[in-house]
């Protein structure tokens, strides 16, 4: 029995790799020079953000920026995602027939039933605690969509009910715009924080005014849209 010698050199061309390393070093040097000539004011940006953060009663600085100061931007992002989902749905219209050829094995079927509630719970946790810890609506929604993906892979007959998705998405979109308009009426800014938000309650679950509400809505919308995209890509009636 002859052992085959395994070497890394066989697969990676040395000349190109050394070229990459050289260019990487060059870029790093340029970056280093650029970063040394930066003005020192950039260090105080975090403190400024924290000061703004305390006016809002939200423990997570990024949340304040994303939802409160750039809420209109978030609306745009959500509509971009909606248009992407709609385009994929139009191009790959899924019938009930499914083109996954092989059955999944018993292990995957059992494990997906155990894992799906855990993933759903984790996604909801990320969504609800978005104003206190890293996380938020987009992340929670995508985590829930990956749980749906696990179910789609494991179970051949499983299908996300289209009417439920339509209802959830419409509800989430309409309520986002409505909350924004109520803020516009009460406080003269789109998505104004009209619910009570005391700074003394900062760090509690029920604090931050409308921001957790908005994150839950964004999470529902993103989760349903991503589930629909994944389902349309996996299940398709015709073979290419």
């Amino acid at each position: 029995m002859n052992r085959r010698k395994i070497s890394i050199k066989r697969e990676l061309p040395t000349a190109t790799l050394s070229g990459f390393v050289l260019s990487a070093l060059l870029i790093l040097t340029i970056l280093n020079i650029l970063l040394q000539n930066m003005p020192h004011k950039i260090e105080t940006a975090g403190d400024l953000l924290l000061k703004l953060n305390t006016t809002e009663g939200v423990a997570n600085a990024v949340t304040t920026v994303v939802v409160y100061f750039r809420g209109f931007d978030t609306l745009g992002e959500i509509s971009v995602l909606f248009i992407a989902s709609m385009g994929i749905g139009l191009m790959l219209r899924s019938n009930t027939k499914c083109n996954i050829k092989s059955e999944s094995n018993f292990m995957l079927q059992t494990a997906s039933k155990i894992l799906f509630p855990v993933i759903l719970l984790f996604g909801t946790y990320v969504m609800i605690y978005g104003h206190l810890s890293p996380g938020g609506g987009f992340q929670g929604g995508v985590i829930i969509a990956s749980g749906v993906l696990l179910l789609l892979i494991s179970d051949k007959a499983f299908e996300v009910p289209h009417s439920v998705i339509v209802a959830l998405e419409t509800f989430a979109g309409v309520s986002y715009v409505l909350i924004g308009l109520i803020g516009l009426l009460v406080l003269d800014t789109f998505l104004g924080n009209f619910l009570p938000h005391d700074i003394s309650q900062m760090g509690m679950l029920l604090s931050g005014g409308i921001i957790p509400l908005i994150y839950i809505i964004v999470g529902i919308k993103v989760g349903s849209e991503m589930s629909m995209i994944v389902q349309n890509l996996i299940k398709r009636s015709d073979d290419v």
Binding site: P134, Q139, V142, I143, A145, S146
Partner: peptide
């Protein structure tokens, strides 16, 4: 960490799969 969580979920979970 927020951006890191987003990047982890989207790049590992969804975008490569799509």
């Amino acid at each position: 960490p927020d951006v890191a969580l987003t990047e982890a979920v989207i790049s590992a979970g969804i975008s490569s799969l799509i």
